[in-house]
Write a protein that binds this DNA or RNA. Structure first.
Lengths: 167, 167
DNA sequence: CGGAATTACTAACGTTTGTTAGGTAAATAT
DNA sequence: ATATTTACCTAACAAACGTTAGTAATTCCG
């Protein structure tokens, strides 16, 4: 709290004119971002039909949200376990719903015979590892825009590293 | 320190008969695991020739190390930033060397015309995201062994999600 | 311009944290 | 059996932490 206050140029005790508690800050960050991600994936599953387009859009949305506020994303990804017990349980439900959203896309892809993911949970977790790991290395000053990152990730996730024979 | 001591059934003050400081514990965990990973990747680059085999072995080694001690791996992945400044700088160098090891594999793969990764840094970071994310979900009680996880990851990383036309 | 509302301050509190010091008990070595 | 070493204890310390209470300063509004 003293570090946050120092960033703002005020005393730690002054923060309590604006917030209720440190936990409230964490809850706001985590739930606001979770809600944003959930809204994005729900829209993807509602609006799009083509599984490839769904996946591409879901990845782009995720990358845009994560890179849109790196500080919040970093807190969201690293600190969610420190939510108070009741909020933590609620949060985990949201995470699971989000994963389910990606699973739905993979199921659609299999039905359309464009994706092949026998172990969908594994595939979804690996996709999420890629999009979430962006907080470890992304910089707005870097040479890739969020859309380029999303495009790279989509290609990596769908076609992998192997040289494409048909090209 | 009180939590660690409680796990051991002793008082926090008693820990100091066995260790120097809390920082020492963190340093030991981080550098021991970094050294282990570096030894593994160096051996892969020395011993193997075939890039696919290199990558498969590098992934298998990483997964084996990470799943071999989940507690240490979790601390290693999440807490390395809390190393004291000098140790942190040293640690970052080791991380970079490890990434370089993977980059070397991708370069070999391109020379052999089996891999295609124009942006190698991006590809390496995405590979590392997958192997490191294991700490988020792996359980020894789960239905996948570390070798199976490594195999799945290798397949995902090399061929992606798309249905293989040649099959 | 004065009063109300808002924001920020200082001081303080209770709790938590990492660690030290001195003492005691247990284990080990001679 | 005695001496030494090791491990653990209690007690304590200083610093850090999240937050409250009362007061002061600033801003806003009629």
């Amino acid at each position: 709290m003293r570090d946050i206050a120092a960033e703002l140029g005020i005393e730690a005790a002054s923060l309590y004119s604006h917030i209720k508690s440190k936990d409230e800050i964490l809850e706001t960050i985590c739930f606001r971002m979770a809600d944003e991600l959930l809204r994005a994936i729900d829209e993807v599953n509602d609006v799009y039909f083509n599984a490839e387009e769904k996946l591409a859009t879901a990845i782009r949305n995720h990358v845009k949200i994560v890179t849109g506020d790196l500080n919040s994303s970093t807190v969201f990804l690293r600190e969610w376990r420190r939510l108070p017990a009741e909020k933590l349980a609620e949060f985990v439900k949201l995470r699971n719903k989000y994963e389910d959203g990606f699973t739905q896309i993979l199921i659609n892809g299999e039905n359309e015979n464009v994706f092949e993911a026998p172990d969908k949970k594994f595939a979804v977790l690996t996709i999420l590892s890629a999009v979430n790991w962006i907080t470890e290395w992304y910089s707005p000053k870097g040479n890739m825009t969020p859309d380029e990152i999303a495009e790279h990730l989509f290609r990596f996730i769908t076609t992998g590293l192997r040289v494409k024979i048909t090209e």
